[in-house]
Write a protein that binds this DNA or RNA. Structure first.
Lengths: 161, 161
DNA sequence: GGCAATCATTGCCATAGGCAATCAAAGCCT
DNA sequence: AGGCTTTGATTGCCTATGGCAATGATTGCC
């Protein structure tokens, strides 16, 4: 295999860039989505990309505890961004799914984030941009991230039978 | 100039990668720094990289309001990670500076983050790693981020005449 | 039919953030 | 000098987010 422990310089470059990206991610919400916080946005992203989930699974996806996820759903429900419905087969379970309004919030925040990123990328010479894209794609692929152009439009893909 | 609006594909690649990096940034604290939160870590990073700051300037650097910064300093002070001292010339001002213990926390969290990033980067073929590093460096440079290998060791640089 | 496991929720706590108000100290302006 | 404004920090009070422990409601297993 042509794999190996990366050089410190490589890690250093990613580490430095990551500080910028974290800052951008946060700004993309504070400004764009009037009332949506980072945590709420992450929940919506998970629901948008994975489809309806049980509370436990949502909690696990967000790496928080079920109470935390549950209370966040209370707030998202109050804003009409998600729906809650008990499963008919197992009445303990509560399925949470994103509403069109919720999807809208995700789209808008993503658009805002795109703007901020585009502003930064515009300062990179054109001839280098393709290389930058390839590098970030390689990184995302290595991390097993799903490109958001591949998210399911409606929840079908998220119920692995 | 050889600059221009970046292609959607470029933005998309960065956007996708940024989700991973945000997640890594958060995980690097929850696990590594025993009791230090993301917000506290960011405050320490600012103080480590910029040297002693007045409360207003720290707040501005963190993009939060002075009360928020002030209360965070209360908590960081309680943990011995920062110091607070009034300036002798203008007694309204409170200068906040990082302690050795605080610097230690930053170093450890950074180390942890490096590990996580190295794990991901190790899955990228060696021959592509140099290109990835160059791309991330170009991105960080475009965003005006200071590489952490260039942080001041002690506070001298942060008091611009 | 009863008991253990699973899922969601509620109670209580700490951190983090905002706005409005207050206090203290400088600065400015007659 | 005395008063008004501006600046800097803090305090009060609100919401949101996160955790753990306990509770309630079902389901599944014996």
């Amino acid at each position: 295999m042509s794999l190996s422990t990366p050089d410190d310089a490589v890690v250093d470059a990613v580490l430095t860039a990551s500080r910028t990206l974290v800052a951008v991610a946060e700004r993309s919400l504070g400004a764009a989505a009037e009332e949506t916080t980072l945590a709420q946005y992450r929940a919506l992203v998970v629901l948008a990309s994975r489809g309806p989930l049980r509370m436990v699974d949502l909690a696990r996806a967000l790496a928080v505890t079920p109470p935390t996820a549950g209370r966040m759903c209370d707030r998202l429900l109050r804003k009409g961004l998600i729906r809650r419905h008990r499963a008919s087969d197992d009445r303990r379970e509560v399925k949470v799914s994103i509403t069109p309004a919720g999807r809208n919030v995700v789209d808008q925040a993503t658009a805002r984030r795109r703007e901020l990123l585009a502003d930064i990328l515009a300062r990179i010479p054109v001839r280098r941009q393709a290389g930058v894209a390839a590098a970030f794609q390689a990184f995302a692929a290595a991390a097993g991230e799903v490109p958001d152009s591949q998210w399911p439009e409606q929840a079908s893909a998220a119920e692995p039978g």
